[in-house]
């Protein structure tokens, strides 16, 4: 068998072992996650494996197959230059398919005044960019990919992995954040141009602190500024679609999600710029009970 290297990472409540046939993606991860704590005793929840697609692909046009404890058939391999993206996708896959200690919402989340703002929507809605931007403007970053909804307490737990910036968001954030917080720029990946950003330090040191959700937004970038009320049935259905493990959690997922829909006010938000979004959010936030 080919030799494997590995590192251990802890992000919010989850611990990972990332094993790789190549050092390069692990060195990049180790650098970007250098301020994160290590999982105790070497014990983790999930193993991610980055392996050559075919044995000869370790050295010749190396191509990375994403595997691990949980995996999908037909996952397309990535070139080694995108190994860091492969590792992040591998961790997301473990969470999406294997995590059961929270209801997982495909959503970003930020926190202010001890309460959480949750933003969910399709890819391209701008939820990830919004969370990154708000995190530089007085909000505490909690996560750009998954919001973890507590099954018993209804609180949101942070999952502050590296922020995955796409396309135009890369340039926008480069104007705001210091150079040493960025990973390598990866051009023309299956998800477009990608560059990872280390979350603000406080997001990492306080990643064990959960917060009560106070507002749920369905942002949509590029449409004329508008806030729209939504029916509970629409909210519920869209959240089941945004959850990777709603079905897998059975009754406890049903209870957590119905409580969330009951208690958390929600709006659809169309916006055309970050300033507009910030203004709309501040307006809603100031009127919360």
């Amino acid at each position: 068998m080919g030799k494997m290297h590995h590192i251990l990472l802890k992000i919010g409540p989850a611990a990972f072992r990332i094993a790789s046939a190549w050092r390069q993606p692990l060195d990049q991860l180790a650098g970007l996650y250098r301020h994160y704590p290590a999982p105790g005793e070497g014990q983790v929840d999930f193993t991610v494996r980055l392996e050559p697609d075919k044995p000869w692909r370790r050295h010749i046009r190396p191509s990375v197959h994403i595997g691990g404890d949980f995996w999908l058939p037909d996952a397309a391999p990535l070139p080694l230059a995108q190994g860091l993206l492969a590792a992040e996708m591998g961790m997301n896959l473990q969470m999406a398919l294997g995590w059961r200690r929270h209801l997982l919402l495909h959503a970003s989340s930020v926190k202010k005044d001890g309460k959480a703002l949750v933003m969910t929507g399709l890819s391209g809605s701008g939820k990830s960019t919004l969370s990154a931007m708000l995190a530089e403007r007085g909000w505490r970053f909690m996560g750009d990919e998954f919001a973890l909804l507590g099954l018993d307490d209804g609180k949101i737990s942070p999952f502050p992995r590296l922020i995955s910036l796409k396309n135009q968001a890369i340039g926008a954030m480069q104007n705001l954040a210091a150079d040493d917080r960025f990973g390598p720029e990866m051009k023309a990946t299956p998800k477009g141009d990608i560059r990872h950003l280390v979350p603000p330090q406080e997001a990492v040191t306080r990643m064990e602190e959960s917060a009560t959700p106070a507002l749920l937004l369905f942002p949509r970038f590029g449409h004329a500024r508008e806030l729209r009320e939504m029916g509970q049935a629409e909210i519920f259905v869209r959240l089941t679609q945004a959850s990777t493990n709603y079905v897998a959690l059975g009754e406890s997922g049903f209870r957590a999600l119905t409580r969330f829909v009951d208690r958390v006010p929600a709006r659809a938000m169309d916006y055309q710029s970050i300033e507009q979004a910030e203004e709309l959010i501040d307006g809603l936030w100031s009127k919360l009970p």
Binding site: R17, G42, Q43, D69
Partner: peptide, 14 residues
């Protein structure tokens, strides 16, 4: 001991 647990879990899942 230690990481042997992680090995056990990965094998059991696989």
């Amino acid at each position: 001991r230690g990481s042997e647990w992680t090995d056990l879990i990965s094998m059991a899942r696989a």
